[in-house]
Design a protein around this nucleic acid. Structure first.
Length: 267
DNA sequence: ATGTCGCGTGAAACGCGA
């Protein structure tokens, strides 16, 4: 069994005590991290390595940055999403992990652009929103390419998309937000329609289950959250899916990230 | 009605991104 989790840590350096505590408790085999907010050399590889993890990083100063932790042997395949050489944001890393005596799993850690604010003063779509939509189209193309490899894969991360109105606490208030606007939701659906399975939703169908709560306005205490962190599985990986969930405990800890891990188990 | 973090700059408080 391989336990795979995705977690936007909102700075790995600020989150190190909470991250170490959670890794010891939860014992995931593979962790897809987002928003590490540091360059490769500054990633706390020794502290994480002491817990038994191999580390692959695509870092960046101040913003963004993604990484993959794996107790299994790991082989880095990509440190950027193909399709635009001029894109200098560190938002994607992909690797192969090989379970003992099991079939290889291709894993991608995604930090999809937020895209807010979506409009300029003149009402036209903002550059940030257009960048998000273009990034999603690149992800769509890359996923098509991955499906052709016939490797089982897990594409996980902070998608910055609430797929439906039951995936957040205030749909009306977020109507014009980049996480909910129809264009970004349509691209997410297109991705799913390639034949992917949402690992969390395969086992948890109730509305109003969340992976993110804003630091502001007591959102965590009021459960004013959003479901924006997702684990999308290839058909082969979906066949191996045994369990999934959201572990809310790290969100309740001192010095928490605003996101909490989403996980799944593959046979 | 309001309520937050984390980072970098540059030496304290601010702007940015979320």
């Amino acid at each position: 069994m391989v336990k795979i989790a995705t977690w936007n840590v909102n700075s790995i350096k600020a989150r190190l005590p909470v991250a170490v505590k959670w890794l010891k408790q939860f014992q995931p085999d593979v962790v897809l991290l987002q928003e590490i907010k540091c360059v490769d050399e500054a990633f706390p590889a020794l502290e994480i390595g002491d817990l038994g993890y191999n580390v692959a990083v695509s870092g960046q100063k101040t913003y963004n940055g993604v990484a993959i932790l794996s107790k299994l042997p790991i082989e880095v395949e990509l440190t950027a999403l193909p399709g635009d050489a001029s894109d200098d944001h560190a938002r994607y890393i992909e690797a192969l992990v090989t379970p003992k005596g099991g079939k290889v799993v291709r894993v991608g850690s995604i930090y999809l652009p937020n895209g807010n604010p979506t409009r300029n003063d003149d009402g036209k779509d903002s550059d940030k929103y257009l960048y998000k939509l273009k990034w999603m189209e690149r992800l769509l193309h890359h996923t098509e390419a991955m499906l052709k490899t016939e490797d089982d894969f897990v594409l996980g991360g902070d998608y910055n998309i609430c797929p439906t109105d039951t995936d957040l606490y205030d749909p009306a208030g977020f109507k014009d937000d980049a996480l909910c606007r129809p264009e970004s939701r349509a691209r997410f659906r297109q991705l799913m329609y390639l034949g992917l399975t949402d690992a969390f939703r395969a086992f948890n169908t109730a509305p109003h289950l969340y992976s993110y709560w804003d630091y502001q306005r007591g959102a965590w205490a009021k459960d004013n959250g959003l479901l924006i962190d997702h684990l999308l599985l290839s058909p082969g990986a979906a066949d191996r899916l045994k369990a999934s969930g959201i572990d809310k405990t790290p969100r309740g800890m001192e010095k928490a990230s605003d996101h909490t891990p989403v996980w799944c188990e593959l046979d």
